[in-house]
Design a protein around this nucleic acid. Structure first.
Length: 495
RNA sequence: GGGGGCGUAGCUCAGUGGUAGAGCAGCGGCCUUUUAAGCCGUAGGUCGAUGGUUCGAGUCCAUCCGCCCUCACCA
């Protein structure tokens, strides 16, 4: 990496060391005051001395006076450096430049034009930056560099920073929502010996000491429902799940899932929970129920409309009955998506996805799915063909999935076995009999929910791509640089 | 995997076959109220990689690498 370091910055580093200045001191001389507090309380605090710390922006130099902006986690404030106040620092002033991280003690005031300014009386270099800042006006815009070097993106682009702060606030609101309802947050295994709870290709890994294959979880569902059996009646987990599938603006191989389970509730209860979560996030984080997303506006004011799956199916397929197998297969053929090896219901669901989902601007709860495509959902008491399940769609994007959880162990065992028998490469290859055993002990009737936190964040922050709400989206590995060796010695620095 | 686009200085970008450019950042100088500061001067390049066509390639062709969009895939 050494070859990429700017030689002039390296030279400044050396000069600083030679003049007795530590470029990477261990101690910060004081507790920094957030710059936003200084700006907010300018009038009452003017004339007082404060210590701030952060990264310097471009320096505007007037000979005996220079200005720069210092940015910290709270915001930014202008710092004024005057020769007459800085006898000790002044000779070294040109060795401190944009991108360096500094501590500044100074007197709060304004400029002639009234801008809040901390007039420095003491400047301490806290970290010398050896690479230059991105362009001051356009910032860093190259998307590949932004994703690969998110650390630069974050400090160079304020809106990126605020985007990720919003993501954190969203998750905090969700936690508060469940906590207030008496849910407890739990952590279940990420390494599964049998991947289950969803249909997706898993990542495979290996435990050496036990000499066995393990799978990164594709969903926490089956472990969370074991907790219902154990008497933890309200549980939720926010955690990473992994699916070994394609990458797109809506898909990353690892993403964050919220799952919650509530005993003595059903999917009707859960619809209210979803409205509660979305409403709370809109109110407390976004500050509006009207969301802009991909050139359209969505009104997230609860309650959300509900539409039946089979009615939507008929509506967008010339009145075709979902349960009319011959008709469905003919329709699939017309759409060019017929796959004779798949079951009637799977094909029908493919038709649904091809014809209906794109029209689901939403927000809308699609409710009452055919039971055959919902292996963990309970049928309606008055119609065994229909499962008590809903999905929430906004902008054609699936944001949540919920059902009244199947708790009949015999039914569940049959469904899992059928799934394995009917296997394609996305369904589990093995039945999780321990899960069936758990149900045999008795799982209370319950409503369960899954929400994709990344997609929720996309919607709430108007981000077109899931990569814009993931700090470090997965990218292909680059070819390693070859000329890293220094003095013939192996390069053992972290890269 | 299919289709389309992109890759030039640290950053943002021009450059359609004939001597590699600009702005910002950098370096040297002037300036005590700037905030995309200004002015004068200066330095900076394996044009993603490899091969080909050509008297001559950043530019045309092929292959490869990477990224973006899109389709396919995706409980």
């Amino acid at each position: 990496m050494t070859k990429h370091i700017q030689q002039d910055r390296l030279a400044k580093l050396t000069t600083l060391r030679d003049s007795g200045v530590l470029p990477y001191p261990a101690r910060t001389p004081g507790t920094p005051v957030p710059t936003a507090k200084l700006v907010a309380k300018l009038e009452e605090q003017a004339g007082q001395s404060f210590f701030v710390a952060g990264r310097l922006g471009q320096i505007r130099d007037f000979g005996k006076l220079r200005f720069s902006h210092l940015t910290d986690r709270s915001g930014t404030i202008q710092v004024g450096f005057e020769r007459d106040r800085l006898s000790e620092f002044w000779p070294n002033r040109k060795l401190i430049e944009a991108n360096d991280i500094v501590g500044v003690q100074g007197e709060l005031g304004t400029t002639q034009k009234g801008e809040p300014t901390l007039w420095a009386t003491e400047v301490t270099l806290l970290t010398k930056a050896l690479r230059p800042a991105p362009e001051k006006w356009h910032g860093l815009t190259d998307v590949e560099t932004r994703y690969r070097m998110r650390y630069v993106d974050l400090f160079a682009n304020e809106n990126v920073r605020s985007q990720f702060i919003m993501r954190s606030r969203i998750i905090r609101e969700i936690r508060a929502f469940f906590d207030e309802l008496g849910y407890i947050e739990v952590e279940t295994p990420v390494l599964h010996s049998i991947p289950g709870g969803a249909a997706a290709r898993p990542f495979v890994t290996k435990h050496n000491a036990l000499d066995m294959d393990l799978y990164l979880r594709i969903a926490p569902e089956l472990y969370l429902k074991r907790l219902l059996v154990g008497g933890l009646e309200r549980v939720y987990e926010i955690g990473r799940v992994f699916r070994n599938e394609g990458i797109s603006t809506r898909h990353n191989p690892e993403f964050t899932m919220l799952e919650s389970y509530e005993a003595f509730a059903d999917y009707r209860t859960i619809m209210g929970r979803v409205e509660g979560i979305f409403g709370r996030v809109c109110a407390n984080v976004v500050g509006s129920y009207e969301l802009r997303f991909r050139d359209a506006t969505y009104d997230l004011t609860p309650p959300f409309p509900k539409k039946r799956y089979c009615e939507l199916f008929a509506e967008h397929n010339d009145g075709l009955d979902f349960f009319d197998e011959a008709g469905v297969r003919a329709r699939a053929k017309a759409l060019g998506i017929e796959r004779p090896e798949l079951s009637h219901e799977k094909i029908a669901n493919d038709v649904f996805e091809a014809t209906v989902e794109q029209h689901l601007d939403g927000p809308v709860f699609v409710i009452d799915y055919p039971k055959a495509i919902c292996p963990f959902a309970k049928a309606k008491d008055d119609d065994p063909r229909i499962a008590e399940r809903f999905e929430l769609f906004v902008a054609g994007m699936e944001l949540g999935n919920a059902f009244s959880e199947l708790n009949d162990p015999i039914d569940q065992e049959g469904r899992l076995e059928a799934q394995v028998k009917d296997k394609d490469d996305e369904t589990p290859s093995e039945v999780d009999y321990d899960y069936v055993t758990a149900l045999e002990y008795g799982m209370p009737p319950a409503g369960g929910l899954g929400i994709g936190i990344d997609r929720l964040t996309m919607l709430m922050t108007s981000s077109d791509s899931i990569r814009d709400v993931l700090l470090f989206p997965l990218l292909r590995k680059l070819q390693p640089d070859e000329e890293v060796v220094v003095d013939g010695a192996p390069d053992d620095s972290a890269s």
